[in-house]
Design a binder for these strands. Structure first.
Lengths: 338, 338
DNA sequence: ACGATTCGACTAGACGTTTCGACGAAGCTA
DNA sequence: TAGCTTCGTCGAAACGTCTAGTCGAATCGT
């Protein structure tokens, strides 16, 4: 910056004012400064900026979801968030450390590196929130906690998604349906979306008079396959599956197949919150009820940035409805059990 | 830091020395300082550190591969890189801006924010390398350029992968095989791995005396489906598919199915560099020849960090071999065309 | 017992920005 | 023309850390 100032024949402070428009600068001086900046390929140093108390333009995305393997739908959030952050001139730090290590989170925010934080994989009672609040760092969430707190968040409308999915199955004549959730250890951590979806499923099923069992399942195709075999042994009348488990879903289909059951002739499968890309990887393609993950990630960043830039107003909370995509895994319930 | 010093009854410099071990500190003083740091929950400020000329411990991961949609195998690199960076106490910045915008890359590295850069989606002649070299910032690559340059990189051994895959098909009796590559616009950008794999396929096929056509395909299931129909119209003797296109692969399978062809009875499909997770999403699961993406990402970061921390020695280059996973999409070539 | 050595701690810049206070030169009012 | 703004610019302090240069006190050899 000193070089630029020298070259333009002004002081460093003038360059700074020209850069930020903090004080008026004559057009002629400004032109000289800009020319000098271009010639020297000058870029302001972020560290010095932030050291002086300004924004670092760095946001951390907390994505601890490694226990579950990789969800393609999570990737949708990540890329949506990343794209929007970039277009708003923010940097996105991808932080994949496990949610449990609060000490390292405290270190991260204590470093003063970040302007704000976007949380993913929110738990019903998420201790990270305490850490962030104590540190006084702004944050927003993709997902919500159990108690409604005054924070910006976006979340999938599980009540609506589950309702639409079950209604689709009910309309097709299915009466015995199972809800295949995430793995048991995951549920024990009270991962918000899994708990929420399960509650929604039970409520909706009761209202519709469906016979709905709920069951946990590891996030692998193998687990899905053995699970569906066990379930069909238990309840031969089972004709419908509702699942929140992106990775077990193909296994469920494969498991039915090995039993001689065809999808969707004998067994219908509907996935909620499964990304389109994952849905199209199976044959037949999966019927889903899913929100737009990219858009959710985008809005999460937008809400956070609004907060960072001091836009006034109350905290924003938005539920995203899912749209029913009828693909190849759902069909009329068989009239006779084969 | 001043607070810590005051509380421990020493000067700030002494705290700094204790923190970095730059100069000897008496055990007793050190204990007092550490106690004070713990009580005050002190974390050093990264910006001030870097401003003084030290490392910021921030690495950018350049992942511009958005044109192709999302590859699950790319996600493997990203998570492998992220995990290792975190375990080495580095921050990972996810940079998804398109590869073409060199100006914004120049700005990124000019900000002085980064210690180093890890490149993904390397092109045969990648202009980003010039930018990074000019900026004098250390970098490593996942993938290699056309000309061998003196840089740290990790890459898939496409010669080996393609060889193993084609040999598998040849052993099963397939003679007419098609290589389904990435989309044409992608090939035009001379994306390194696509070019490299195609060359490898042609060489290996010639050596084995296989009839191998090569064809580009958009990264969607629909494109894969219509493509395989067209190909089978053209060459009814076609019985084997080798593909580098993770997203088109399920479409190829579905397309064959709609023609009344069963996989693998009538048509065999082998995917290279497809992630295990993607392979398990289709039914039957996909036969693949793939390297360990997580490990590649991990090593990419390791090489970069070695460079950053001034470990001497020549640049390291490592090719990762793929292992053949025979799953459900490859089988003996039909003796009679049905 | 005295000078040399070592050990432990301190003082004072420096890194690259932003911003407060000041100041000269105009332009205005009366 | 004297006094007031307004405009454009400058000098200097501050942000939090690291480190070169010092310096007193303790230890050691002779």
């Amino acid at each position: 910056m000193a070089d630029v100032a020298r070259r333009a024949g002004v002081s460093v402070s003038t360059v700074s004012y020209a850069l930020n428009g903090t004080r008026p600068i004559s057009a002629e001086t400004r032109a000289r400064i800009e020319a000098a900046m271009a010639e020297l390929r000058y870029t302001p140093n972020i560290h010095a900026r932030r050291l002086r108390g300004l924004q670092s333009k760095i946001i951390a995305l907390l994505y601890p979801g490694r226990g579950r393997g990789i969800d393609i739908s999570s990737l949708g959030y990540i890329l949506g968030a990343s794209d929007h952050a970039q277009s708003m001139d923010y940097h996105l730090l991808l932080w994949t450390t496990e949610a449990g290590s609060l000490a390292s989170l405290r270190t991260l925010v204590g470093q003063g590196l970040l302007d704000g934080v976007l949380l993913m994989e929110v738990k019903m009672d998420d201790p990270r929130i305490t850490v962030l609040t104590e540190a006084g760092i702004p944050f927003a969430m993709i997902g919500q906690t159990g108690r409604t707190i005054d924070v910006d968040w976006v979340d999938t409308d599980f009540d609506q998604c589950v309702h639409v999915a079950l209604e689709h199955l009910a309309t097709l004549g299915h009466r015995h349906v199972v809800f295949v959730n995430q793995a048991a250890p995951i549920l024990e951590t009270r991962l918000s979306f899994a708990i929420r979806a399960q509650q929604a499923a039970q409520t909706a099923a009761a209202r519709m008079g469906l016979d709905l069992a709920t069951v946990a399942c590891d996030s692998t195709a193998a687990a899905g396959s053995s699970l569906i075999n066990r379930l069909l042994d238990q309840d031969p009348q089972l004709t419908g599956v509702l699942t929140l488990n992106e990775q077990a879903a193909p296994g469920i289909m494969a498991g039915a197949l090995t039993r001689g059951l065809r999808v969707p002739d004998h067994l219908s499968i509907v996935a909620i919150a499964m990304s389109e890309q994952a849905a199209l990887m199976s044959a037949p393609a999966m019927t889903t009820v899913s929100p737009d993950e990219r858009e959710m990630g985008r809005l999460g960043i937008e809400l956070l940035i609004n907060r960072l830039e001091g836009k006034p107003g109350a905290h924003t909370q938005k539920l995203f409805e899912g749209t029913l995509q009828i693909r190849g895994t759902s069909g009329p319930a068989p009239t006779q059990i084969s």
